[in-house]
């Protein structure tokens, strides 16, 4: 994340200012706010596509979880990797993807990140280190460990953040991966977005430990739980874990307690939770909170925030226009990329 405007940032009241903000810088903080808005508006627009029957298949919205995605990615550079989940739009934007190509993928167009072959659940941007969303719960976790093995072996200095939900903490892949990463001291941030429900089953009804971070003890790595709706808390934990990983200290398990205010997917009828609970979490909206804080600290004034939102609206509108004007893939290219073409194959 760039800190282009750090030098022109107004001074901030020192008392309430989280220490990590110094490291992120004023420009970085404004960019984080912009990305959180961009995620929110992307999700809302995607939802609108869906309910109007303009998109295909299903999708999983991360509205309410923006601080986790952006807070973790604040500690990463373009050469660092992430693996993502079925609820992956936010991670993708937080890692620097263009919303136009994401919308195009969402609409199954040739200009999409996966040329329309993947859809909402598989958006990836390897050029920016995003190894892809994943339709399998826990599917990305061992892959992240493999990417970390590459980073260690090839000495690239990269770290890997593996996002997964609370549901994945009961998958075998999670446990095998934590063990291997800790055993081999690999540079991984295991980031659990604990949004309280594995589809409809509440965390307490699925998991024998009180919090996912408790699992870390079993694999001899630090485990921390943070408020996933608090950008500062998430970013602080992510920077610490990334620093440790880059020093060769091995992996960290970071649990971010958060909430998805929408259903699991759009077919969710919300029978397993109450309106009151949803409203209570909406009151802790990570974006409003972050915006208020930046305003109080003088990093982004109300006017700054308004112009930032306007810019996000334009970016979303341009992205939608780009996607809608993009061609569908040709059926003549159905077989493309099942295998690497012989001519393109590197030895």
């Amino acid at each position: 994340m760039t800190a282009a405007r750090a030098e022109d940032a107004p001074p901030v009241a020192v008392a309430n200012r989280p220490a990590i903000y110094d490291r992120v810088g004023a420009g970085g903080l404004r960019e984080a706010l912009r990305r959180m808005h961009l995620i929110r508006r992307f999700e809302e627009t995607a939802e609108d596509f869906y309910v109007r029957g303009k998109s295909y298949g299903t999708m999983h919205l991360s509205i309410g979880q923006e601080a986790t995605a952006v807070g973790v990615c604040a500690a990463l550079g373009d050469s660092d990797y992430v693996t993502s989940t079925h609820r992956g739009h936010g991670h993708c934007i937080a890692k620097g993807a263009e919303v136009g190509r994401m919308f195009a993928e969402f609409l199954g167009r040739e200009t999409g990140y996966c040329r329309g072959r993947g859809g909402s659940m598989h958006i990836a941007d390897p050029a920016k280190g995003n190894l892809g969303a994943n339709g399998i719960v826990g599917g990305g976790i061992p892959i992240a460990v493999g990417a970390a093995l590459s980073a260690k072996r090839l000495r690239t200095g990269a770290v890997v953040a593996s996002f997964f939900g609370d549901g994945a903490n009961n998958e075998g892949a999670f446990h095998e991966s934590l063990n291997i990463a800790s055993l081999w001291k690999l540079p991984v941030l295991f980031v659990c977005e604990n949004n309280q429900y594995g589809m409809s089953v509440a965390f307490a009804r699925s998991t024998a430990v009180a919090s996912v971070a408790d699992r870390a003890a079993a694999y001899s790595m630090p485990g921390v739980t943070v408020d996933g709706n608090d950008f500062a808390a998430v970013a602080a934990a992510a920077f610490e874990a990334a620093d440790r990983a880059r020093r060769g200290g091995g992996p960290t398990l970071v649990e971010c307690k958060t909430y998805r205010t929408r259903g699991h997917s759009r077919s969710d009828r919300n029978r397993y939770r109450t309106k009151d609970e949803i409203e209570a979490w909406k009151a802790r909206d990570p974006i409003e909170r972050f915006e208020r804080e930046l305003s109080a600290l003088g990093v982004a004034t109300a006017a700054d925030a308004a112009s930032l939102r306007e810019a996000v609206e334009r970016e979303i509108a341009d992205g939608v226009a780009f996607a809608e004007a993009s061609p569908a893939p040709s059926t003549a290219e159905l077989m493309r990329d099942v295998h690497t073409p012989a001519a393109a194959a590197p030895r």
């Binding site: 869906y50 309910v51 109007r52 029957g53 299903t58 759009r266 077919s267």
Partner: peptide, 12 residues
Amino acid sequence: VILPRVDMDMET
């Protein structure tokens, strides 16, 4: 106010 899609395979 629209009639929203609420299932993957819903057309009407």
